[in-house]
Amino acid sequence: MSEHVTATYRVNSEGRTIAHPAHHTLLEVLREACGLTGTKHGCELGECGTCTVLIDGEPQLSCLVLAREVEGAAIDTVEGLEGRDLHPLQKTFADLGAAQCGYCTPGILMAAKALIERKPTPTRADVCEALSGNLCRCTGYIKIIEAVEWAAALCRGESGARPADASLYGVCKEKPHG
């Protein structure tokens, strides 16, 4: 049997004391011991970004982090994003259809949250760079990028135009039949 450890983690501002095999990654502890399956398992190779969480505010791939190493650190997952209301990122992603199958969404939301907290007015290049470790196979990034930009505007307290109506990037025009 593998060695077990007991450790206390601060997940979404809540202390959780957990006994788990010493070799478990943060991804395994979150998903299996804490039951927080919002953080996704995509490759366990640090390549796809679906397991992105924030550790002390920095985006990290939880599949590459040994859980014991982050004992005591502030760990934020998608489950903690929603306060009394949805986070602006959650609102804009839902509104623009930036989640197709949705499997990459939690990781992207966390990477984006770190970006807009670090840089409240990100340029498009900033957004692309911040999300460059997150793959998406079906939605196709366009709406994701627009949703991050819109959420950043909302976080700054600006009302911000809904991008699909006045897009710089992904222009969609209605074209009624007849």
């Binding site: 692309c128 990037y169 025009k173």
Partner: peptide, 21 residues
């Protein structure tokens, strides 16, 4: 894997326009 098998990422996105008929 998804590192050496490369799929497009956010920085590869062009401007895109969709016209639904």
């Amino acid at each position: 894997d998804l590192e050496m098998y490369k799929i497009a990422g956010p920085a590869d996105m062009p401007e895109m326009e969709v016209v639904l008929y």
